[in-house]
């Protein structure tokens, strides 16, 4: 998850944030890290570029992008058939 945090920081240009500042379960949006809707789109781009993962259902977005852990779990689940 440390790599994923670094990639998120780079993709979203969070220059005041360090990987250790982001808790594994910390909410990424709202009162958590304070990301916005454009950041959500950039996260989708990140998943496509780095992990070749596409969101098939936009309604799953809030659940998948809730925290770094939920993103990591989503990426992992796409690597295991029928997971």
């Amino acid at each position: 998850m440390a790599d994923l945090k670094e990639q998120i920081i780079e993709q979203l240009n969070l220059q005041d944030v360090k990987p250790e500042d982001i808790g594994d379960d910390q909410p990424l949006f709202g009162d958590g890290l304070g990301l916005d809707s454009i950041d959500a789109l950039e996260l989708i781009v990140l998943l496509q570029q780095k992990y070749k993962v596409k969101l098939s259902n936009a309604e799953d977005g809030p659940k998948i992008f809730r925290s770094v852990r939920t993103i990591a779990e989503f990426i992992e689940s796409t690597r295991i058939p029928n997971a």
Partner: peptide, 10 residues
């Protein structure tokens, strides 16, 4: 040329 950047688009 790759995936268009939403952050740039705005």
């Amino acid at each position: 040329q790759e995936i268009a950047s939403p952050a740039l688009f705005v």
